[in-house]
Computed example of a mutant assay.
Amino acid sequence: MTGYARAAGAVSGASFACEVRSVNGRGLDIRLRLAPGFDALESDIRQLVGKMISRGSVTLNLSVEREGAGGDLLVNRQALATVLAAIDELSGRIPAAPPSLDGILGLKGVLEQRDRPMSSDAEEALAAAILDGVSQALVDLVLARRHEGSQIAAILRERLDEIETLVQRAEAHPARSRETILAKLRQQVADLSADITIPEERLAQEALLLATKADIREELDRLTAHIATARQLIASGGAVGRRLDFLAQEFNREANTLCSKSNAVELTAIGLDLKAAIDQLREQVQNIE
């Protein structure tokens, strides 16, 4: 399910902003982009996300602005030593003018801007405020996902109604009756040759055998049971996406069997319409938690 939420806050010496968004996913995939220096919060943030969301691809961005940011400019002596060693090694081997001081200091990594340090108490207060902000953003995200979920639930109910209507049409189709199969068998025998005479008892036996092979009673009963189960899951709410996904696979299995057993073009058409409705149901199921 998709959703977006944002939370911001501030403590003495710093402010922060947290953005969290989610898109559809088969499982729970958490991607964190934390401000430099806040990697220690990763485990706590992942636990917060896992408690509130069970399915979807979740991306959380955390940015932090400190008061007086960039106030201290320091020389990275290790990077500078590496640069000077490279200059000494290449000097005389490559015809070039000696590098200037501003050119060396302009190289990436030689000069670093560092924020002025905060007290340990201020750092702890900032970390606690960030976790509170993340929690609030996740609450808002869950609300957004629930709103979308209520809309998807209405679509799922429509698909289930469509599937139920098709099951009822298959249930009422006359091609399923032994009498219809017997009449069709008589006509086929008559079309072969008027001289062929088959005892009525033998025709009745063959009709019973064909009716048994074409019997879709079990498939229709299971489809009806699946419809009832799906409606109960949707009504119960919560994280039912995986269970509905499994149920959609069972729907599809029964529809395939119905088509393979079909003994009439009209019944096959109903089975194909049933498969199409089930595919639409399954596509929507992928969008819920």
Rank of each mutant, 00 (worst) to 15 (best):
G50P: 00
V142T: 10
D273C: 14
K184L: 12
L34S: 06
L208N: 08
G3N: 02
A239F: 08
E67A: 13
A81P: 01
I234E: 09
R159W: 14
C259L: 06
R26L: 06
Q286H: 13
I198M: 02
A255R: 07
S119L: 05
P117F: 10
Q113W: 01
R202Q: 01
L182S: 15
G56P: 06
N252M: 02
E219F: 05
M1I: 07
R21I: 04
D121N: 05
A8R: 11
L138Q: 08
I130P: 01
G271S: 14
V49Y: 05
S22M: 11
V189E: 15
R146Y: 13
I288M: 07
Q136S: 09
L28S: 12
I53S: 04
P36C: 10
V83E: 13
R116Y: 09
Q280E: 15
Q136A: 09
E206Y: 05
F38S: 03
S260A: 08
S135N: 15
R159F: 10
E200T: 03
K213L: 07
R145E: 07
S43D: 13
Q284D: 00
T268H: 08
A85C: 00
S236Q: 03
L220D: 01
V75T: 06
S22Y: 15
A7M: 02
E250S: 00
E123D: 04
A79C: 12
A129Y: 15
A225E: 14
L111R: 01
R33C: 08
Q151P: 15
E148D: 14
L209Y: 08
L233I: 03
L258M: 14
L60G: 10
L267Q: 04
L160P: 04
I198Y: 05
D115A: 14
A96N: 09
R231A: 04
G133F: 00
L101Y: 10
F38N: 12
Q151R: 06
A153Y: 03
E289P: 13
Q136V: 04
A137S: 06
C259A: 14
V285A: 06
S15N: 03
H147D: 13
I288E: 06
I45R: 04
F246H: 05
S12E: 10
Q280V: 11
R55T: 15
